[in-house]
């Protein structure tokens, strides 16, 4: 039974990394949002499974938030924004997809090399969870730096945050996990969708952050 629960946790956490890679090669905003919703579903599964095997019932709240908020509400709202604002439907990348994928693989290798020997003393579940979580975090960072479009940067940030939630739930009995996931949700809802995208829209025709580069105090 122990090994089965271990395998399922492993499968779900590994699935999260896989979906992170899928996020990297999406070239249309809508499909990017759909894949992000898929990642949130996988995260909800992984968190719920952790809640089950650790007997930590408060983690079900985190799983429910992931499912309701990140898998349904946020992708829906971003769909609406993309539609209403008439943003370019393509994902504008700084680096081409191929090199980005290679860099992503490098980052996953890095996190495995970094985390696995470290946590030899820990139970294997926490160890692999941390390695997977770091991979998801680094892939999210990679996505944030290689995308120019504000919507895809937000998706990158949320995927990075999924990695953090995975790490926090994998650490047995860690307090404040639910609070942190609630705080992140509020943060995403308020700051990103509410404030920035609409106000950026007031001034510019696209939500392409590169368009904001023109007026820096630096240039004469």
């Amino acid at each position: 039974m122990v090994s089965l629960s271990y395998d399922i946790a492993h499968l779900l956490a590994g699935g999260l990394v896989l979906v992170s890679f899928m996020l990297l090669y999406q070239d249309r905003l809508y499909s990017l949002l759909n894949v992000f919703a898929l990642q949130a579903v996988v995260l909800a599964g992984a968190v719920a499974w952790q809640a089950h095997i650790q007997g930590a019932h408060h983690l079900y709240v985190t799983a429910a938030i992931a499912l309701a908020f990140k898998a349904v509400l946020v992708p829906w709202a971003l769909h609406r924004i993309v539609e209403r604002l008439g943003v370019h439907r393509e994902v504008e990348t700084v680096v081409r997809i191929g090199p980005t994928m290679l860099a992503g693989m490098g980052l996953v290798a890095l996190s495995v090399v970094l985390m696995l020997p470290l946590t030899a003393a820990e139970n294997p579940l926490a160890r692999e969870d941390l390695a997977f979580a770091l991979s998801v975090i680094l892939l999210g960072l990679l996505m944030m730096v290689t995308r120019r479009n504000a919507v895809s940067q937000v998706v990158g940030f949320m995927s990075l945050e999924n990695g953090l939630v995975l790490a926090a739930t994998g650490a047995r009995g860690m307090p404040l996990v639910v609070e942190i996931s609630v705080a992140f949700s509020v943060l995403i809802a308020l700051i990103v969708i509410g404030v920035f995208l609409f106000r950026i829209r007031e001034r510019f025709d696209t939500v392409d952050v590169a368009a904001l580069d023109e007026s820096r105090g630096e240039r004469p």
Binding site: F196, I200, E202, V209, L212, S215, R216, G217
Partner: peptide, 14 residues
């Protein structure tokens, strides 16, 4: 809410 202020806030946020 100027373009420069929004860019600064966005960069700070990211």
């Amino acid at each position: 809410r100027t373009s420069a202020a929004l860019e600064a806030a966005w960069k700070y946020f990211i």
